[in-house]
């Protein structure tokens, strides 16, 4: 980016901190520019302040988090332990981010288009939540706009709302401080209605779920590992499928609810101590047994390990 952006006549700034980086993104977004920033977990913690402001001010922006192990300085291995922060809101206030979880290098590329589309369609920040494995993996990539993924008719022209200078129009202010009686409550209601509309963007991939009695639910690198396990377990006669959430918020809860009765077991597989599994449980309630298999602190499950756990869990009677 440091090399290419100036060549393209665009702006690249190395910030002094992630607090500053997200604020610079906000400054650019305020003027209607397409702006993004990227970091790994500890830096994204610092960005939570700015993310909350971006949501409060309804500004479009893209933030990519290539998650590493925590808490604290943790380590620099792959992890998915920032799920809560990304999906439940790591900053202050009632807000939502659209969260995209790529599971391949191709999707890392493709989702950048989708992320900006969604950011401008809803005037809301979008997070690409990846992990240290997908983030460092080498895979072939086709560099072309992924038309099949894009949101149709997004208006990237910000002139109706951005700060462009009060030329021939009254001045504008973009702010999140709303002090008047009931004004902030009304603003929050408007935001919630927008988040409701954003839930139409739910995306997922369901693999071999038609006849499945047991499914894995996994995103990012874990979905890739689950695919390996799937092939093997199917060969052993277990009717296993995979639900891969592509959007972590909105979460494919409706799909899970609709299929809960058909499933004997659901196993959430994550590189965390159990975060996404809470959304799975919320979706299906008591209707299906929900198990969890996770590794943390930079540990990654092997296909062997996952198969052994799946055989144990999926053959249990209720």
């Amino acid at each position: 980016m440091a090399r290419r952006m100036p060549e393209e006549g665009r702006v690249f700034v190395q910030s002094e901190s992630e607090l500053a980086a997200i604020s610079m993104v906000m400054g650019a977004a305020l003027t209607g520019a397409r702006a993004m920033t990227t970091s790994s977990s500890p830096g994204v913690s610092l960005m939570q302040e700015g993310i909350s402001y971006l949501c409060g001010c309804e500004l479009p922006a893209v933030i990519a988090n290539v998650v590493r192990g925590g808490p604290g300085l943790g380590n620099i291995m792959a992890a998915q332990s920032d799920y809560f922060q990304a999906v439940k809101g790591g900053g202050h206030g009632d807000y939502r981010l659209l969260v995209l979880a790529p599971a391949s290098v191709q999707e890392m590329y493709d989702f950048a288009y989708l992320a900006f589309d969604a950011a401008f369609a809803y005037r809301n920040p979008v997070m690409i939540l990846s992990d240290g494995l997908i983030g460092q993996m080498m895979e072939p990539v086709a560099f072309r706009a992924p038309q099949h993924l894009r949101i149709a008719g997004v208006n990237y022209d910000a002139s109706s709302w951005a700060l462009t200078g009060a030329m021939g129009r009254p001045p504008r202010s973009i702010k999140s401080l709303l002090l008047g009686d009931g004004v902030l409550e009304a603003h929050n209601r408007t935001l919630q209605e927008k988040y409701q509309r954003m839930s139409a963007q739910v995306r997922y991939e369901a693999l071999q779920t038609e006849d499945a009695e047991h499914i894995f639910v996994a995103y990012g690198i874990c979905a890739r590992i689950c695919q390996g396990a799937l092939a093997r377990l199917r060969g052993e006669g277990l009717r296993v499928g995979l639900l891969r959430p592509i959007t972590l918020w909105p979460f494919p809860s409706a799909w899970l609810r609709a299929h809960a009765a058909q499933l004997r077991h659901i196993m959430a597989v994550e590189l965390s101590c159990g975060q996404m599994v809470e959304d799975v449980r919320l979706a299906v309630g008591d209707t299906t047994r929900v198990a969890f298999h996770g590794r943390c602190g930079g540990g990654v499950m092997t296909v062997d390990e996952l198969c052994a756990e799946a055989r144990r869990v999926f053959t249990q009677e209720h």
């Binding site: 400054g27 650019a28 520019a33 001045p171």
Partner: peptide, 22 residues
């Protein structure tokens, strides 16, 4: 009577950087 925004506490120079550079 011109366009104004508000930054998080202390972050105004970073917000201004984003605005001015773009």
């Amino acid at each position: 009577n011109f366009d104004v925004t508000e930054a998080a506490h202390g972050r105004a120079p970073a917000v201004a950087t984003g605005m001015r550079r773009c």
